[in-house]
């Protein structure tokens, strides 16, 4: 791979909350088309790592390059870069005072200055793809958890992002709804969307990931292609972790 393909480069990333150091020097390269699955025990720093990538958490040290720009530089306008980094949250975070369609076209119309008609046309196409076109005029509170998360994914897609960040997207779902959300994510991966996914879904990691990353106590202790990663783990902490979750 050439360096041109590097979408996100993380260089010695540190993050502390007060006295507590959560990330202790993370290095990573994410290429176009990669599906990086980040796993780790709770409190290991994996969500913090993800949230640093679009600066929802302000890194306390190190650099993050997104499409060649150092987004830890305080002089850049982070809002412009966030448009190209979609994010999907554990708690969905749909805007409850707007219909599904309004949720989706808010960004495109206000930020990308698309016309309402164009934004709605694109949104409807995406809704159709995830099988929710009949919910366009429903309010989020009228949807099931799985439906909410699918809407959250297409809301992020409406901005035409270059990368999607998933923060435990299935952890708040009832078990029978996990599948429908993972299916959408698998579909996206197949279409070449670059994704960084923090999850406990090992099956998803195995099937879809191009690279699996294990974070423990604020550091990446092991990473590799899923086949090797799951069948032949080397780090004892990873072995211990996998024995508990598999």
């Amino acid at each position: 791979m050439t360096t041109n393909d590097v979408l996100i480069k993380v260089d010695n990333l540190h993050k502390s909350f007060g006295e507590v150091e959560v990330l202790k020097g993370i290095n990573a390269e994410i290429h176009k088309g990669d599906v990086i699955v980040v796993i780790g025990a709770s409190g290991s720093g994996k969500s913090t790592f993800l949230r640093c990538l679009n600066k929802l958490e302000e890194p306390t040290g190190g650099k993050i390059f997104f499409e060649g720009t150092d987004i830890t530089d305080p002089h850049i306008n982070i809002n412009l870069h966030r448009r190209k980094m979609g994010m999907v949250f554990q708690q969905f975070n749909l805007f409850p005072h707007m219909t599904v369609l309004k949720n989706m076209i808010l960004g495109p119309t206000k930020l990308l200055k698309k016309s309402k008609e164009e934004a709605e046309r694109e949104a409807m196409k995406l809704l159709e793809r995830v099988g929710l076109s009949e919910k366009a005029n429903a309010y989020p509170n009228q949807l099931s958890g799985g439906q909410k998360q699918r809407v959250a994914i297409v809301r992020a897609l409406c901005m035409n992002p270059d990368v999607l960040l998933f923060d435990e997207p299935t952890s708040a779902l009832d078990p029978e709804m996990v599948g429908e959300v993972l299916d959408v994510m698998k579909q996206l991966a197949k279409e070449g969307m670059t994704m960084v996914v923090v999850t406990h879904e090992m099956g998803f990691a195995r099937e879809v990931a191009t690279n699996v990353v294990f974070i423990d106590e604020g550091k990446i202790v092991e990473q590799g292609e899923p086949e090797e990663f799951f069948t032949n783990p080397k780090n004892p902490r990873l072995k211990d972790f996998l024995s508990k979750v598999l």
């Binding site: 929802l56 966030r82 960004g107 206000k110 930020l111 992020a156």
Partner: peptide, 27 residues
């Protein structure tokens, strides 16, 4: 208002003021 509302809006690329106007204040 749940902090997640704020984060969802910021993650789409809205700045602080627009987030207040479109997302936080109406709720």
């Amino acid at each position: 208002i749940d902090r997640g509302q704020f984060e969802a809006s910021r993650s789409l690329g809205f700045n602080y003021t627009s987030t207040m106007i479109h997302i936080i204040i109406p709720q």
